[in-house]
Simulated assay, not measured.
Amino acid sequence: MKALTIRQPWAGSIAHQSKRVENRSWKLPVKHEGARILIHAGAQLDRDAQVYGPHLGVYGAVVAVATVTGCHWSEDGTCCGPWGFERAYHWTLTDVTALPEPIPASGRLGIWTPAPALIAAVEQQLAVATAI
């Protein structure tokens, strides 16, 4: 399983709101299409964002798991509702599952490989969340 670091408030909006597109300046590598990824809330805030909520106070932690189902370029951003940016690649996300508790972790640029202990901690929370 891979991970993607996303600045707040966007990571929280994926985990706890209806954001199902991640805007990127680079195209999703084909080998990751259809993969489950960890959504990691980065250590920095996107100061240009205008999204608010109590779930946005988490930084430097895995907050959710999602499936990346595709990627397309958008010139005007209108194809993906209010979350799509113009002149960006839109990575589409499905099967988003917020973790009951954020798991602290250091992130990285790009798609990265989490430590086995982090993956195990995420899988443990997912097992508890689906058992409820």
Rank of each mutant, 00 (worst) to 15 (best):
Y89S: 06
R87Q: 14
A105W: 01
L109Q: 15
V122G: 00
A61F: 03
V65A: 06
P102K: 02
V122M: 02
T69D: 13
T113P: 06
T94Q: 14
I111T: 08
V63P: 00
L93K: 01
A61S: 15
C80G: 04
P102F: 07
V68Y: 02
I111W: 14
L93Q: 03
E75L: 09
I111G: 00
V62E: 01
T113M: 13
A121L: 03
P104C: 13
A117L: 13
C80S: 13
S74D: 14
I103T: 04
I119F: 04
A98H: 01
V68M: 12
A66F: 12
G70L: 10
A117V: 12
G84W: 04
G107P: 03
P114G: 07
P100D: 10
A66R: 07
T113A: 12
I111M: 10
P104E: 12
V122R: 01
G60N: 06
V96W: 03
L99P: 02
W112I: 09
V68K: 00
S106R: 13
V96C: 08
E101Y: 09
V62Y: 02
A115S: 13
T92N: 05
A120N: 10
I103K: 06
A120L: 08
P104W: 13
A61T: 11
I103R: 02
Q124S: 15
G107T: 14
G70E: 10
P102M: 05
E101M: 12
G110K: 11
T94P: 06
F85G: 08
I103D: 00
V65R: 06
A64T: 04
H90D: 01
G110Y: 09
W91K: 03
A61Y: 06
I103Q: 03
V68P: 02
P114T: 03
A105V: 15
A115R: 15
R87C: 09
T78A: 14
E101W: 08
C80Y: 02
W83N: 05
C71H: 12
P104F: 11
Q125H: 10
E123G: 08
W73R: 09
C80H: 05
T113W: 12
A117G: 09
G77E: 04
C71M: 13
E86A: 15
C79S: 11
Q125A: 09
V65W: 04
H90R: 02
T97F: 08
S106H: 12
W91T: 04
A120S: 11
W112S: 10
W73D: 06
T94H: 10
W91L: 05
V63D: 02
C71D: 15
A64K: 01
V63N: 00
G107V: 06
G70W: 05
D76V: 13
T94S: 15
P116H: 05
A61P: 05
V96P: 04
L99I: 13
E101L: 11
W73M: 06
A121N: 06
C80L: 01
A115I: 07
V63T: 07
P116G: 01
T97N: 10
C79P: 00
S106A: 14
D76T: 13
V122K: 02
A117M: 13
P104Q: 11
L93Y: 01
H72G: 07
T78V: 14
G77L: 07
T92W: 04
T92R: 11
I103W: 00
P82Q: 08
A117E: 15
V62C: 05
P116E: 00
W91D: 00
V65C: 09
Q125I: 14
P100K: 04
